[in-house]
Design a protein around this nucleic acid. Sequence first.
DNA 1: TAACTATATAACAATTTACTTATATACACA
DNA 2: TGTGTATATAAGTAAATTGTTATATAGTTA
Lengths: 115, 115
Amino acid sequence: MPTKTVMDIGKSAKILKVLGDKTRLTMLKLIEEQTCCVCEFVEIFQMSQPSISQHLRKLRDLDLIKEERKGQWVFYSLNQDSEWYAFILPIIDQLPNQQEKLIELEKNGTRITCC
Amino acid sequence: MPTKTVMDIGKSAKILKVLGDKTRLTMLKLIEEQTCCVCEFVEIFQMSQPSISQHLRKLRDLDLIKEERKGQWVFYSLNQDSEWYAFILPIIDQLPNQQEKLIELEKNGTRITCC
DNA sequence: TAACTATATAACAATTTACTTATATACACA
DNA sequence: TGTGTATATAAGTAAATTGTTATATAGTTA
């Protein structure tokens, strides 16, 4: 567990701004339960790979997510050790489940490539 | 109490985007406990009056705050009847108290004008 | 009604954001 | 080592954001 952090309102606003994008917010909800790799996000959001990488970078720069390389793939998950985890968790928890997006992928067979 | 809302992730992102600004986030924290009028915000944020009005408009457009006119002044407060109140409350609650900004105003005598 | 105060809106400029395409880097494997 | 796949970064662009100044609107009071 991270030590109790004294919240700074400026930093809080920065966190919320990064969450305030539909793509990134959905990403966070998706990886709340399980890791996802970049190519899955590309499929899910029907967006260019660089665009996905740039969204992930913003989340990573704030230490909200962590990456784990497995071979040629990079898997992302919520960083539960982040000092901001306690701040964002109640937000993410209130969001509607997005797992149907992954189920959709499996149906298309698009999820096989890396998992 | 508002009826339980099915959260939409796109709308959630829009809410968070509006919260993701230091000025607006501080405004929300300030009016969590007590109403503030526009001229107080102008003093607190040392920002032009139109700029303050525009920030308030974004919060009002999303129904996060409510206004109450008293004579020539308009007082703003958190809209506890908003269907998003339950969503934003845990966020606001985690923010550091901002009341010292109002205390500062009283010290300067700047709060007298409207209260 | 005229003058004054508080607030909102309009119009505009500077900055930031979120894509795109092109390219670089990292790893896998023949 | 060379080729292919996955990911990251760079550079450029269109749209959105956030401030400004100017002006309109609403209420107060002489």
